[in-house]
């Protein structure tokens, strides 16, 4: 790689960092974007842990130290899914108010605009994972595979936030409407509830069980949950990484097509 290419790469990295920082600031300065990422999943975690803690005694429930320990992965998934949705809403707001024109009129590769947004979403995913790990530790949940396991869980949550953010960004770029992206909020929860995020697949009834078994989110949840409730399982981890990669590819393809469409329609 020659010096010019390296310089261009460094400039693009600075652009992604600057747009990512803006995305994070935007989320923290707009409570309606922050609330679904932290407040809502924390409340749901508290309610479920307090009200359904006895579920761990059901036959077929995986061996866990506590229901809170089991639920941490689900809370992180909920937080990152809503972070991806919030990122999409914020991008759509940018389009509606014309801010993206400022970005499109700059001499930067257009992928950096999407990557900047995703970097911000990934940072929020990281924040969410740290938040829920801290809550878990404070309220007595153990991370069975120690620091290494915690780091794996954090990495998976961060990567998944970025992947899900790609889908949110694609929908925002295609529709240019914050209300359409916001309208996906219930759908996000439905997809999440039809996974093993909040309840083990084995205890679900059909057809939810069949859906959950093939839902890519279930593979990711199990990859995050494994290091927390037992230990790192190579197969589980591999399946989680593959599921994330699939969502990343889908998000990138859809985003690239949506970007082209936006330039066509202005």
């Amino acid at each position: 790689m020659d010096a010019g290419s390296l310089g261009s790469l460094a400039t693009n990295a600075r652009v992604v960092r600057a747009l990512g920082m803006r995305s994070i600031r935007q989320t923290f300065r707009r409570p309606q974007l922050m609330a679904p990422i932290v407040v809502f999943p924390t409340l749901l975690l508290a309610i479920q842990t307090g009200g359904a803690g006895g579920a761990i005694n059901l036959p077929g429930f995986p061996p866990v130290q506590s229901f809170l320990q089991f639920m941490l992965a689900g809370a992180m998934m909920q937080s990152l899914m809503l972070a991806g949705n919030s990122g999409g809403i914020a991008l759509a707001v940018d389009i509606e108010m014309g801010f993206t024109d400022r970005l499109f009129a700059a001499p930067i590769p257009r992928y950096t605009i999407v990557l900047g947004r995703l970097a911000g979403t990934a940072a929020l995913g990281l924040f969410g994972s740290l938040w829920f790990l801290a809550i878990g530790l404070i309220f007595g949940a153990q991370i069975e595979s120690g620091v290494a396991g915690a780091l794996i869980a954090i990495a998976l949550v961060t990567a998944t936030a970025m992947a899900v953010g790609g889908i949110g960004a694609a929908i925002a770029l295609r529709t240019g409407s914050a209300s359409v992206v916001q309208g996906l909020f219930p759908l996000v929860l439905v997809v999440l509830f039809l996974s093993s995020a909040f309840f083990p697949n084995e205890l679900m009834i059909q057809p939810a069980r069949a859906i959950a078994e093939y839902n890519p989110l279930s593979f990711i949840v199990e990859g995050i949950r494994g290091p927390i409730i037992s230990g790192v399982d190579a197969t589980e981890l591999g399946e989680a990484v593959l599921a994330i990669a699939g969502i990343v590819v889908l998000g990138l393809v859809l985003s690239a097509r949506a970007l082209r469409h936006r330039l066509q329609v202005g």
């Binding site: 803006r22 600031r25 935007q26 300065r29 707009r30 940018d94 108010m97 014309g98 801010f99 024109d101 400022r102 009129a105 700059a106 001499p107």
Partner: peptide, 16 residues
Amino acid sequence: RASIGVALQEAALDPL
């Protein structure tokens, strides 16, 4: 894009 400056209609600024 490297040669131009653009100030579009309805100043597209992020209020935050």
